[in-house]
Structures are given as C-alpha cells and as structure tokens.
C-alpha cells in the first residue's frame, strides 16, 4: 500500500448536491404554457452525507433507484460539482479534476463503455497508456497481470463489437485499471451479466483490492455482489445515509431472527407447527421457522428431537428482503418523496 496515503482515502463531510429541474405536466396546453414559464423545482439528490473510508477498504453503496448512489459516486470521481460540503479523495478535491488526482482514481460504469467499438480492446488499452503516460515497462507488467487475473487471453485482440457483454466488461475493467488507480469507483459493474461471469468479476475485484491495496467503492443492484465483496455497507435513501457499518450487524439489527428451513421425511400435520415457534411459511414437506437469536438453540433442539427430519438449515434472512424492509420503513417515516429524482 502506498505510504503517501493520508489516514482516510475518502473523506466526505456534509456533502450536498441539489439541482434544479423543470417540471411540466402532460398535455398540449401545459406544453404551450411552459414556453412562457417553466416551473422549476429543486431535487436534493444528495442531502448532507458524511462518511470516511480508509485506504484498502471495500465499501458497498446500497439504495433503491434514485437514492443518490450514482450521484455520490460522480461527486467523488469529480464529475459533478458539489452544492456544498467538504470532499477529499486520495488527498485531492475531486471537482478540480487535477491530472494527478485523475491518475489515482478510476470509474467503471456497467451501463456505459469506454472501449472503442470498432477496434480490439488492446487499442483502447494502448490509448489509455498514452493518456495516463504509463511507462512501457509498467504497462506491460500491469497488462500481463490483469490479463492473467481476468483471463483475457485472445479476447483483447478481437474487435470489441464481436465480444459478449461479459467479455466486454472484463476488458472495460482492464482498461480502467491499467494505470493502477488507488481508488476504484464501480457503478453497477455486474449489471446484465450471467451468474458465473458475476462470480469471476467479484473474484477479480477482490484480488485486485488485495494485491494493490486499492480502495473500492461499489454500487450494485445485486445484493450478492455486495455480500461477497464488501465487509462494510453504506445505505443511502433519498440522498441521506440510513446506515453505515458492517453488513452483518445491519442484518442483525433489522432482522434479529434467523431462518430455520426444514424438510420432513414423513408428512406432518400443519397444526403441529405452532408448537415450535413462529412459522414463516409451509408447503408440502417443507417449512420455514423464524427464531430470535436467543431462542435459536432451544428451538432447533426441539425440532430435531420431535419432528421427522430429512434436512435442516439455518440462514440469515435474504439481504434483498432486509433492504426492502429498510426502505419501506423509511418511506413510511417520511411519506412519498416530493418529485423524486428519476
């Protein structure tokens, strides 16, 4: 890990990003009227968030669509100018977009690509080498390492337009990491990929993080990405932070219960279930019980002793469900958001 790092790799204090949008209702008359006067309203995309991330940390950004995840990421990358607040990334103020700063970060967007469409990815790599002024030896070395980690092989030599989505994403990552950035911003990097490709990209991000000690900030719709990669999560909703901490304790505070799924070896009358604990659902030869942490051991013991079991497993509630509950709760607290960013 480079010694020049300050205590925190990313430092955010009371960051705000508000912008004005024009609003117009549908219909001919509204359209004509809006020529003269366009009603504006302020969207608070990011509304006073603070956090700090240490060098080498992997942090997941979670939140529903329009929560402000991407806006925050763009603020951190220096693409957006903050309305107010303090912001330091790798020792720089991002929005100045100084060359030194840009050499230390990278942004990967799952829905947008920087690869040149008509040429093999290798040409984009070469162009980035010139842009980032990477010395030839370092370039060859990094490219070799990335090729091996990502299993690029021949892919890099065929025209981009002939590659599959997954292969393209691998090359996108390679192009974005050639200059060995210290801070990685990954915006939905696995979107649209199949499960095995998601898995290999996750493995890669983790390997890169461990090998180069880089800080990783990730947003994803796939909870599995976050689960597999990020010990720490920041939950954003409506531009404010709802939770910041480790993933395990988020799940524990929100859903203190454990799921106990069982499969029976002989039919059990449903009326029996009530005796053992809270039943979440039952279907055919399967049933799922909910137990608070402290009652888990006793409950499982009773089930094991009294029911004819073929199988039993204990799990945390699925992250998707936890999140849905969290956001539903915040929506109830505050009522529908005014306007709401798309």
């Amino acid at each position: 890990m480079p010694a020049a790092f300050s205590a925190a790799s990313i430092e955010v204090r009371e960051l705000r990003k508000h912008y004005q949008v024009h609003r117009r209702s549908a219909g001919l008359w509204a359209a004509l009227r809006s020529v003269a006067r366009r009603p504006r309203e302020t969207v608070r995309a990011v509304d006073g968030i603070s956090f700090s991330i240490a060098p080498g940390e992997r942090v997941g950004f979670l939140g529903p669509n329009g929560a402000g995840k991407t806006t925050t990421l763009k603020l951190l990358a220096g693409l957006l100018y903050p309305s107010s607040g303090r912001l330091r990334v790798a020792g720089f103020e991002p929005f100045r977009r100084e060359a030194e700063f840009l050499r230390k970060i990278t942004l990967v967007m799952g829905q947008k690509q920087q690869l040149l469409w008509d040429l093999p990815p290798l040409e984009t790599f070469e162009l980035n080498r010139a842009l980032y002024e990477i010395p030839r030896r370092q370039y060859d070395e990094t490219l070799g390492e990335l090729t091996e980690l990502l299993d690029l092989g021949r892919i890099a030599r065929s025209p981009t337009r002939q590659l599959s989505l997954g292969e393209r994403m691998k090359c996108e990552l390679c192009a974005a990491l050639l200059h060995r950035p210290e801070v990685l911003f990954l915006d939905e990097p696995t979107i649209g990929l199949d499960v095995s490709m998601q898995l290999s990209l996750r493995r890669f991000v983790r390997a890169y993080n461990e090998r180069f000690g880089a800080t990783v900030l990730l947003t994803s719709h796939y909870m599995d990405d976050v689960l597999a990669l990020c010990p720490r999560v920041v939950v954003i909703d409506r531009g404010t932070i709802r939770y910041d901490g480790d993933l395990g304790s988020l799940v524990r505070t929100l859903r203190p219960e454990k799921l106990v799924s069982v499969r029976f070896s002989a039919p059990v009358p449903p009326a029996e279930f009530g005796r053992f604990g809270k039943l979440q659902n039952a279907e055919g030869d399967r049933a799922v019980f909910l137990f608070p942490q402290d009652a888990l051991q006793a409950g499982v013991a009773r089930i094991l002793a009294e029911l004819p079991l073929a199988d039993l497993s204990i799990e945390d509630p699925p992250l998707e469900e936890v999140m849905r509950e969290l956001f539903a709760a915040s929506a109830r607290d505050e009522g529908p958001a005014p306007g709401g960013a798309p």
Binding site: K74, A77, G78, L79, R97, A99, E100, L102, R103, I105, T106, L107, M109, K112, Q113, Q114, N128, L131, Y132, E133
Partner: peptide
C-alpha cells in the same frame, strides 16, 4: 447522449483537446 463523456472528463488530459 450516451453519457460516456464522463470517461473523457476523467482522463488526465485537457478535455477540449481530447
């Protein structure tokens, strides 16, 4: 239109030149 200008702005060289 595609939003890929972001990549250009994040390169350590003058965006106008690029």
């Amino acid at each position: 239109r595609k939003g890929t200008l972001d990549f250009v702005l994040l390169k350590p060289a003058d965006a106008q030149f690029l």
